[in-house]
Design a protein around this nucleic acid. Sequence first.
RNA 1: CGGGAUGUAGCGCAGCCUGGUUAGCGCACCUGACUGGGGGUCAGGGGGUCGCCGGUUCGAAUCCGGCCAUCCCGACCA
Length: 483
Amino acid sequence: MPNKPTKETFVTEITPRSEDFSRWYLDLVRRAELADYSPVKGCMVIRPYGYAMWELIQQALDARIKATGHVNAYFPLFIPNSLLTKEAEHVEGFSPQVAYVTHAGGEELEEKLVVRPTSEAIIGTMYANWVQSWRDLPILINQWANVVRWEKKTYPFLRTTEFLWQEGHTAHETEDEAEAETLKILDLYADVCESVLAMPVVKGRKTESEKFAGALRTYSIEALMGDGRALQAGTSHNLGQNFAKAFDIKFQARDKSVQHVWGTSWGVTTRLVGGLIMTHGDDSGLVLPPNVAPYQVVIVPIGRENWRETVLPKALEIQRALAGAGVRVTLDERDERPGWKFAEWELRGVPLRLEIGPKDIEKSAVLVARRDTREKQSLAMDGLPQRILQLLEEAQANLLQRARQFREEHTQRAGSYAEFREMMEGRPGFVIAPWCGAADCEARIKTDTQATIRNMPTANVPPGSCVRCDNPAKAEAWFAKAY
RNA sequence: CGGGAUGUAGCGCAGCCUGGUUAGCGCACCUGACUGGGGGUCAGGGGGUCGCCGGUUCGAAUCCGGCCAUCCCGACCA
């Protein structure tokens, strides 16, 4: 049922966040035209507005990946099945999710092809040909690609059968270098999340049971969504020599010995778009940080029947001035009522709305409404672009600050298991607790509370015993119910 | 893949139990007029193989069977 518009929400047709977070999210994805369901099960269409957000994330990430010495390349979508099966743990981990091509060209293929769920196998195979000497290292390659993982349960952006991502694959001379690379990328991801998406993340190491199939160690960044559930926003893996041994990636070292390379791989996906929605959105719709807003400013002309003659020229002038200052700006000159346009652009999360009407022109001013705070103020036309840039920065900073505060308010420390369970049943969020390191303890906690260890931010061993058993603690773990 | 629910216009739904003219409502959409600083009003209009296949019947959106899809809850995942 459509909701009555109120002063607070202004928007119809979106389930209130507090009423049903999941429906709110799905309504928003559809109404803001970010994505649409497709005829293919589990596969969504990313619509232009949603794709524009992904493109901005790509640009920010790509620039940072290149600035740290990596280069882009492209590897095939299809992988011969025999290659995928070379690394035992890797196959075992991925086989339930793999899609195969068995027929092509009107015939059954001699060897079925895997539609890549990730590219370690094909890239490792190529690296084996490319590496001879320590002088060939490191190899620092990234690719932007689509991958397919057959999922039982799908959800727009957060979990779809086909998704877009970037995957970096590097090969190094030493273990230390590979570990440094793994952590460097983790920092890079965290920086993009915080400075571009205004989405604070917790960096840490994954447990054995949650690590990437075939990796030595997996690190992740974890964000907290508006409903108190955690979202894995990116992963970085130290592959050790596992894939090098499986794919025979060897080099002659400085000391003349022949050794296997040390590998890493790392990725973030279109899931980030979902994370963005769930971090900042409200009952009126999306709230976009300026750095990922396809439009940072929308200009809405206000006026009487002849506004096209009286107001539009001024609006166009402002548009040109802002565009000239590097602002992504659009002018809404559709023949709709202003109030309707306000609601529509709020739904789409545009950070700043400029209202320009006869009254403003008279005062040589313009009315600015902020999406993040809903504050309105009149600004002089003089020096407007500089003031707008300043407001965009303020909005960006405010959103990060607000999200940080939300996370802090939803992060607790548990001393006992009783307390832990109570916290997990009560207000959702992160619970920090000492853990003994045993997989069965971890599994038991999941059965009892649905919470999993998201990651372990430090290598420090906390004093005392495991939150669930009496064994000494080996790590401080961040628990949460996760997407 | 197990348990529950739902498929009727782009979206949200009524009609089904108790079969029977032309399948209806709200929003959205199209045309026109008046409007225009927070989702306006009026008038006119377009849009449906009632998820698919089969059965029962003189007659099926409605009853029966099968299939498919989607959503919610549990086991796997970025």
